[in-house]
């Protein structure tokens, strides 16, 4: 599929037409930061955002998602996806989604997630501003983003729109697109290549070297407890992570006391009770009872356990965990530097 071009002056009308056709989500400002939100008008769209507080996984796997609903007589699946367009996803978040797609579809196909995923058209966009903590250029660098339906790049005078799937191509009808010139395509490539040079943080070692060293440090209890000394077990690093997808499940009743729902909620392996079971008579067993053990599990998972399956680490370098950690101990670049030096 060949690349198209739309002028700055026509872009707003393109977004408006898409909004009229169905729900469109994109980055919008929230106080001093950004979030993905349903767009009411094209003016809200902030393609110049650096990073959103939560990754776009929230649109496919919401923080609270009903799995089944029941009443006195029956129970049924709560899967009810919304056909939508998601506009303006940076490539690192596309990679996060692609990883989650694999993990939620392999072995057992999770329709509660995949239904939302398969009814969404994703338009990725170039990174106009790089957040302070991002290191996406130095993680999984050889693995291209995939799973999106089109790629939008801001260049002089407008945007290059590269359709990648039929879904992406179908969006062309909403705007005044013309074929992009070779020069425009070349400029788009240059813009995207330049974004990779702007990260302030970067890994100094290859994913293979990191995986080997982190795995070898598994039994170094002193190291993990030192790294986790200031950990609040708040799970913020998990909650904002585009590649975290663990959940808890709870049943609740509605106020009629008869009907209700079984709901899954984002859970976090850094929180204290994540691996705790009741043994009866008030006794419990916590299979990851210390801060160090929980901290270690996150780093094993992000840099060791899933590498073979994903072909890259389970980290996309968005830097959200670094920014979200109040104690500032979660930054993968700094933590891995410390482990490499151990």
């Amino acid at each position: 599929m060949s690349s198209m071009f739309i002028k700055d002056d026509d872009f707003s009308a393109f977004v408006t037409t898409m909004i009229e056709a169905g729900p469109v989500y994109g980055p919008v400002a929230k106080r001093s930061r950004f979030i993905f939100e349903r767009l009411e008008s094209p003016e809200e769209l902030r393609l110049d955002y650096d990073v959103t507080i939560l990754p776009p996984k929230k649109l496919f796997f919401p923080p609270a998602q009903d799995l089944i609903r029941f009443d006195a007589d029956e129970f049924k699946s709560a899967i009810d996806p919304e056909e939508k367009v998601l506009l303006g996803v940076h490539f690192y978040d596309v990679k996060g989604l692609d990883q989650t797609d694999l993990l939620y579809s392999e072995r057992n196909f999770d329709s509660s997630y995949m239904a939302n995923r398969q009814t969404t058209t994703i338009v990725a966009s170039n990174i106009q501003n790089v957040s302070d903590r991002a290191f996406f250029a130095s993680v999984g660098a050889g693995v291209p983003a995939k799973g999106h339906d089109a790629f939008l790049t801001s260049i002089t005078g407008g945007y290059v729109f590269e359709p990648l799937t039929e879904r992406g191509e179908a969006l062309l009808k909403h705007g005044a697109f013309v074929a992009a010139t070779d020069a425009q395509v070349a400029e788009a490539e240059k813009v995207n290549a330049e974004a990779l040079t702007k990260c302030k943080e970067k890994h100094e070692h290859s994913a293979e070297d990191i995986a080997a060293k982190v795995a070898a440090a598994f039994d170094n209890e002193d190291l993990w407890s030192e790294l986790a000394e200031d950990c609040f077990s708040c799970g913020s690093c998990n909650t904002v992570c585009p590649t975290c997808y663990c959940f808890d499940v709870q049943d609740t009743w509605n106020v009629d006391a008869v009907s209700g729902q079984r709901t899954r909620y984002w859970d976090a392996c850094l929180t204290a009770d994540f691996a705790q079971v009741s043994l009866g008579e008030g006794a419990t067993e916590n299979f990851r009872g210390s801060r160090g053990e929980r901290f270690r599990h996150r780093f094993m998972r992000k840099s060791v356990y899933l590498n073979d399956k994903l072909g890259q680490p389970a980290c996309v370098g968005c830097g959200r965990c670094s920014a979200a950690c109040t104690a500032d101990i979660a930054d993968p670049v700094r933590v891995i530097d410390r482990i490499m030096a151990s």
């Binding site: 993990l103 072995r107 057992n108 999770d110 997808y245 808890d248 859970d267 691996a275 079971v277 599990h297």
Partner: peptide, 24 residues
């Protein structure tokens, strides 16, 4: 082996023993 388990289908993460999912 026994672990905390929620989904039973290898997604929710609670039953992990290193990289293994106890449930699947």
């Amino acid at each position: 082996l026994e672990r905390r388990m929620k989904c039973g289908v290898g997604k929710c993460g609670h039953c992990q023993i290193n990289d293994k999912y106890t449930c699947v």
